[in-house]
Amino acid sequence: MVCLILVLAACGHHEDAHLSVPQKLKKEANQPVKYTVDVEDQLAGIKKVLVQLGDSLEDFYVPARTTQLKSFPCSNCHTDTGLKPTGKPEKAHWDVHLEHASIQTMECQTCHDVSNPEQLLSITGKAISLDHSYQLCGQCHSEQIKDWKGGAHGKRKAGWAPPRVVNTCVECHNPHKPAFEPRWPARLNTQSLKQDKE
């Protein structure tokens, strides 16, 4: 009897033991999770907007861009209609140099609406809000936008727990110069160096 129980116990154990973690997850973890933890307190003070991509699997958010821009709304300077600013125009946007794709592909007007700088333009000329600039990037960077939607590209705000608030593209990438700069590592382990030399 005891032997039988032991054998049964052993078999039961084995059936589960040979499954890898991903196999087990696929088999057992398919239900949405009811969380007992969230990061709402971490997100206090961040205005979030719902991501609009149409085919999103679940709702997630990006931090609003317009509330973060220093010179927004544009009408602060551009009091007249159109692009002609009041004040000293030669000082404005002086630091913007476009280093994003080749000049054949991209110029200012590829993304900016000349007639209304407070919004962006899609390739087909549809208006895109600055809060939803990811829609603009996603036109060319289709692989990246897919990964970003799923969670393989980009960074979460606050933490892993709900609600899911994700940095927009422009929070890590300067849209005018999106590549990351090379730099030196943040540290050098001198102890380890010493150990290696011995």
């Binding site: 997850l25 973890a29 949405p32 969670g151 393989a152 890590c172 990351f180």
Partner: peptide
């Protein structure tokens, strides 16, 4: 609910952390 310090500090988003039991997690 926070991410580990390494995930938070990574400037390139190379590090992803989350709940394996949540089919909707990243």
């Amino acid at each position: 609910g926070k991410n580990p310090a390494c995930v938070e500090a990574c400037p390139t988003g190379a590090r992803i952390f989350g709940n394996l039991l949540d089919p909707e997690s990243e």
